[in-house]
Every structure is written in C-alpha cells, then in structure tokens.
Design a protein around this nucleic acid. Structure first.
Length: 422
RNA sequence: GGAGAGGUGGCCGAGUGGUCGAAGGCGCACGCUUGGAAAGCGUGUAAGCGCCAAAAGCGCUUCGAGGGUUCGAAUCCCUCUCUCUCCGCCA
C-alpha cells in the first residue's frame, strides 16, 4: 500500500497519476487524509493521558515506599477516571487505525511515469519483437492435439483424478517439464540468483503481504480448516521471507529464484482461449524475485526483463515484449512488462511472463526495509516469471512440430536427453 | 497426538510486581592510546507513532501474539503460536 505521508504531501500528484490507472476515487483519498488527521488527534490525547497515568503510577510507588499509604490511596482514586477515559480513547484509536488501513488497501499503486493511459489489453504498447513467426505445414495442430497424438499430456486423466485444469504429464512430456524447470533454474543461478524451494501453502499474513489478499481473494484456493492458502505463485513465499525484516543496505540487491507449482482457481470463461495448457488450475513456474534499493530498482527491472528475453531467445521462440498500459496494470504494480510467445497453430500470442516493479507498495505492506546510514527506509520489490511452463510448452509443441515429430530446441537437449518427441 | 521445558535488543544472556527499553558480555561504530596494529581504555549502539519548520529534545507504544488482573506487568492469570527434549505415529 501507499504511504500515508506520501499521499498527504502529494495529494494532487497521486490523484493525477492514479487516473492513468483509471482510478478516479478522489473521495477515498480525501477520506484517508481526514481520517488520518483524526487518528493523530486521538493519539495525541491518548498519549498525553497515558503520560499522566504513568506519572501518577510512579508517584504512588514512591509514596508507598515512603510509607505514605494514605496519600497514595488518594491519588489512586484519581486514576480510575483516567483509566476509563484511556480505554475509550484506545478503542477509538483502534477503530480508526483499522478503518484507515482498510481504506489504504483500496488504493492501488501509483504507475511509473512511463506508463501510458489506456483501457485494457488492446492499449498495451509493444516495445520489442523478435524471432520469426514459424511456417508450419498446414494444417498445423494445436498443442492439445499434439499432446494426445504423442501421448505426453493427458487432460482427461487429470479430469478424472482431480478435475479440469489439472493435467497429467507423462513420458517425454513429464521429462520436458523437468528439463525446462532445470534449464530455467540453472540460467537464473548463473545470473546470480539464489535458489529456493518454498512452502507451497502460506498463511494469511503472507497472502496480505504480497497483496493477494484482500483484492484477489477468489483467485486463491483456501484450506479453511488450517487457514492456509496454496500459493498462486512463488512470489508469495519468496517475498514474504522478508516480511518485517530490516536488511542492511549492503545486502541489496537480494536475488532469489524459486521453482514451484502454482495453484489458481481462475473461475473464468470456457472455450478455445482456455483450452489445453492455456489456462490451468495447477501449473509450474520459475519465479525470480529481487529486493533492491529504490534508486536502482528500475535498472534492475530492465535487467530482469533482459533475463526473461534471454530465455525465450535460447528456446528460439518468437516473442514480443509489451509495456502494460494503465488499465491493464495490476493493482500493486508500478510498471509491468509482459512477455508473449507466438503460438503458430492457435495463431495468437500467449502470455508467458510478467516482470514488474512494485516499488515500495508491497514493501510498505509487509514492512520490508533496509538500513544504511540514516533511518530505515522501505525497499523496492520486483518479480517476474522466468518462466511459466504451460504456455511455453504449448508454443514449443506447436511451433516445432514436423512430420517426424516435435523438435526439442538445441539448448534444451542436454536437459531432456532426447531431440525429438515422436 | 501425549508429557515436559522454553521464546528478552544484531547475537549470547540476567532479570518473578515499581524509577526496566531492560544488568553483563559479544559484535559493530567512533574516539583515545600506538610508528602501525593487537590488546587496553572511553563513548555510542532498536523500531514505530506523535509534538517540532528541522535538528536537539520531549511524550507514547513495543521483552513471541492477543486478552486479563493491578495505581503500576518482561515479571502474575487465560488463550493462541513457535522452538527444544522425551514418547507415539510416519515418507
């Protein structure tokens, strides 16, 4: 969430920039500011009262020690009213604080100045495109047909055992998954990231920390009995490592990478766009996360963007990079680059990665700070998929189909141990 | 799942109702000392919120979390949580 002081001191600027994200709730901002005013007043009163109570308590202690029990008891009576008053003030303060936090959670992150306004997907700006659209022999098969033909992914079995959106990978399909995961991890490690294997279930605090709660509640599975959430992305456990942490400045940047399964309810539409691997309830992803000094976070974002691009290049997939417009930017992000690969048989672009700078929005929520010379400051958090598997697999299958079978990209062969799926 | 012991500052560790944000030590920073270093000596060493233009200063909160008792809680009571030891179960 945004910092209160920042909102207060830059009210007009905040409103102007949020408008880029199609956020026009001026009233909310004003309400927050006036509620904070009320908070300060209440706290001042409470603090003064508590100071007085502390003084009286000290006095009573001294009097008892000197054996002046009578005087002590007289003062004691004075404290009764004060106590009642304080309890009330404390309650008021708590209500205000809670309400303030709730309101603050409704304010999205401020977009970076390079973000252009726009309604949605259609207004995203294409920054870069590389690789040629492959010429597949007609008729080119979509991946769900290829998956069946070569018996490498079984959607029906998944439906039987779990439900739609939970496929089985088998044989060379399973090996391909494992190869991609290893490849992505190795590339990240070579780029200086530390590998983590995170828990796949997180508690409520963590879900709030990275912003899945309260705004995206319906997207996560929820194990109510134990109050745990299966992670929708490794970003959640990996970033939350640093919840309530004050790092030393020289520890920055923190570079972490994690492979994990991801779980998403995604109660969405059905049809061609979500067929096969296009949208799943469970999928695999390698996620990179960085925690960086505010002065260098945009440099880092570029570095992470290049990392993701490098992976696609090595897999020889045609891809493009989009800079999301205000309307398509997520609630918590300041700037996001989306990566899409071209799927030859489906004749459309598929999103395979999203690289974002959250600036201090997540950090403020989870009190992630760093300390150099002066006071502790909020750090910046960034993350990106590097990469998400299912659509990569879909594109690999479709783009690399030949009469003899599906050709594995050269750089991946050491990981798969085979050159063809046939 | 059962029984017991614990959770104190960056770390170790003292503290069982009053002046304790907390002894002592380690670490770290600065200074003195030294030709230089070590040792030694001295000083400092949490975060958040508020008052203040700001600094200084002051006030409030924080000893796993939440609640309670009390004029006053790190210290007493209750609930939760985590860690350790033993037993049970188990990949």
């Amino acid at each position: 969430m945004l910092q209160l002081n920042y909102i207060q001191e830059n009210r007009e600027e905040v409103l102007r920039k949020l408008a880029v994200k199609n956020f026009h709730n001026t009233e909310l901002i004003h309400e927050i500011i006036s509620l904070d005013q009320k908070r300060k007043e209440t706290q001042k009163n409470l603090d003064d009262n508590l100071a007085e109570a502390n003084n009286l308590a000290r006095e009573i202690g001294n009097l008892f020690k000197e054996g002046k029990a009578k005087e002590a008891n007289e003062i004691k009576e004075k404290t009764a009213g004060l106590k009642r008053e304080n309890k009330e003030l404390a309650n008021t303060l708590e209500v205000i604080t809670r309400e303030l936090k709730e309101l603050l959670l409704e304010v999205p992150n401020i977009p970076h100045e390079s973000v252009k306004p726009g309604k949605g997907e259609e207004d995203n700006e294409c920054l870069f495109e590389e690789g040629s659209i492959p010429e597949t022999q007609e008729p080119a098969s979509p991946h769900w047909e290829l998956a069946e033909k070569y018996n490498i992914i079984d959607f029906n079995l998944g439906s039987k055992v779990s439900g739609a959106g939970f496929p089985f990978y088998r044989g060379k399909g399973a090996k391909l998954q494992r190869a991609l995961i290893s490849f992505f991890l190795d590339e990240a490690i070579a780029a200086g990231y530390e590998e983590f294997q995170p828990p796949l279930f997180v508690n409520e605090e963590s879900a709030y920390g990275t912003g899945q709660l309260p705004d995206k509640e319906g997207q996560m599975y929820h194990i109510t009995e134990d109050r745990l959430y299966p992670i929708p992305t490794a970003e959640v456990p990996i970033t939350n490592i640093y919840r309530d942490v004050i790092l030393k400045e020289e520890q920055l940047p923190v570079k972490n990478v994690a492979y994990s399964s991801c779980f998403r309810r995604e109660a969405g539409s059905y049809g061609k766009d979500v067929r096969g691997l296009n949208r799943l309830h469970q999928f695999d992803k390698v996620e990179i996360v960085q925690i960086q000094h505010p002065d260098r976070s945009y440099q880092t974002l570029e570095e992470m963007k290049d990392h993701a691009a490098g992976l696609l290049k090595k897999l020889a997939l045609p891809y493009r990079i989009l800079r999301l417009c205000g309307g398509d930017l997520s609630f918590t992000s300041a700037l996001t680059y989306d990566f899409e690969v071209y799927s030859a048989a489906q004749k459309r672009w598929l999103e395979v990665s999203s690289v974002s700078n959250f600036e201090s929005y997540q950090a403020n929520r989870m009190k992630l700070r760093f300390k150099g010379q002066g006071k502790a400051r909020l750090a910046h958090t960034l993350n990106g998929s590097a990469l998400a598997l299912p659509r990569i697999v879909a594109a690999l299958l479709e783009n690399n189909q030949t009469e003899k079978g599906i050709r594995i990209p050269e750089l991946l062969v050491p990981y798969t141990g085979f050159e063809m799926i046939d």
